[in-house]
């Protein structure tokens, strides 16, 4: 799972003037033809930098995203749910492995990426900085946060960087289990007792604002991303992704008789676009800058794991092994 709304670095267009214009033209022509870029191909520095940043954020989101759901493994309602949730959380950590490998092909080592996560230098999806109070919060993540992630990932799988696309194809295949499992969990709560219905309604109330933030700032205020779209690093604007998510899942939420906590939410039949109360982007910024309800806890868990696992990694280290950049 993963959120869009990547925080891209401000793009200085003059950085492109440093590039060899002939190589740059050939590079852009290849992308325009729909061909993939492979690790040994020439690429502009800006492309490399933004891709590393995006894939790395995606990988971090997978391992941090395992935490709010992982919390509920020990308290899942029943053996079957426990097994399924465990498999799902394992999947997420596996996705991080695939994504870190893809980012490594661009020249940043895994050690550096993990250092940057632990030291708060790298970002990850904001949505995982919120707590899972009840089992219903966990169900919300499994169904709807994963659904949002799939919207993003399916789009990104059509991007221009070969190793990232191949990793995403593999990830999307596993996500279909997450989505079906999550929907199954929510149907059971919806068709259960009044208390169960109330539990999910409360979770929906808590998670709707972070879910709207999930796709990133509105196009009106988000950074200029034209060059990233042309290079097929970003495959759709934040608002397009958000609209696609609303289109697919709002009817399914309403079908189950739940109320989405936004009185202004409706589809404009003329434009085909959803209208909603503008999400609180100040809150979004606050959380992304480290002041959300769980930011400290999430990073602390990683920090403790890093410190406690160190002796194991030291013991396993072999002088014969060598870190090399992956081939593809």
């Amino acid at each position: 799972m993963y959120g869009g709304g990547n925080t891209f670095e401000g793009i200085k267009t003059d950085s492109l003037s440093q590039e060899d214009p002939v190589k740059l033209a050939a590079f852009e022509a290849r992308i325009a033809r729909g061909e993939k870029i492979e690790p040994t191909d020439w690429m502009p520095q800006l492309y490399r930098k933004q891709l590393i940043r995006m894939i790395e954020q995606h990988a971090h989101s997978e391992i941090i995203g395992a935490l709010p759901e992982g919390t509920w493994i020990t308290r899942a309602p029943g053996f079957k749910r426990k097994m399924a949730l465990m498999a799902k959380v394992q999947d997420e950590v596996g996705h991080a492995q695939l994504l870190y490998s893809a980012a490594e092909t661009l020249g940043k080592s895994r050690e550096q990426m993990i250092d940057d996560l632990i030291n708060g230098k790298s970002k990850y999806s904001n949505v995982f900085n919120y707590p899972t109070f009840t089992w219903a919060d966990c169900c919300f993540i499994s169904w709807l946060v994963d659904a949002g992630a799939i919207v993003n990932q399916l789009a990104n799988a059509k991007g221009s960087y070969g190793p990232y696309c191949r990793a995403l194809e593999r990830i999307c295949a596993e996500e279909s289990f997450h989505l079906k499992y999550g929907h199954h969990c929510v149907i059971y709560l919806a068709s259960g007792t009044a208390k169960q219905r109330q539990m999910f309604q409360e979770a929906l109330n808590r998670w709707w604002p972070p879910m709207m933030h999930f796709f990133g700032p509105s196009d009106k205020i988000s950074a200029h991303t034209e060059v990233l779209m042309r290079w097929k690093v970003k495959m759709g604007t934040n608002d397009e992704m958000r609209n696609q998510f609303l289109d697919m899942y709002v009817p399914k939420i309403w079908e189950l008789g739940f109320t989405i906590p936004d009185p202004n939410l409706k589809k404009n039949t003329e434009t085909g676009k959803w209208e909603y109360t503008e999400p609180d982007w100040e809150e979004f910024k606050r959380v992304i800058n480290g002041n959300g309800p769980c930011n400290k806890e999430r990073l602390e868990v990683r920090r403790v794991a890093e410190a406690r696992g160190r002796w194991v990694r030291e013991a396993l280290k072999s002088p014969k092994a060598a870190y090399v950049t992956p081939l593809a």
Partner: peptide, 19 residues
């Protein structure tokens, strides 16, 4: 979880092993 007081030192090369 135990408290880890000291800052976590940066990863050494090969901390994530060979490829």
């Amino acid at each position: 979880l135990p408290q880890i007081q000291e800052p976590v030192s940066l990863k050494a090369p090969l901390d994530q092993f060979g490829t």
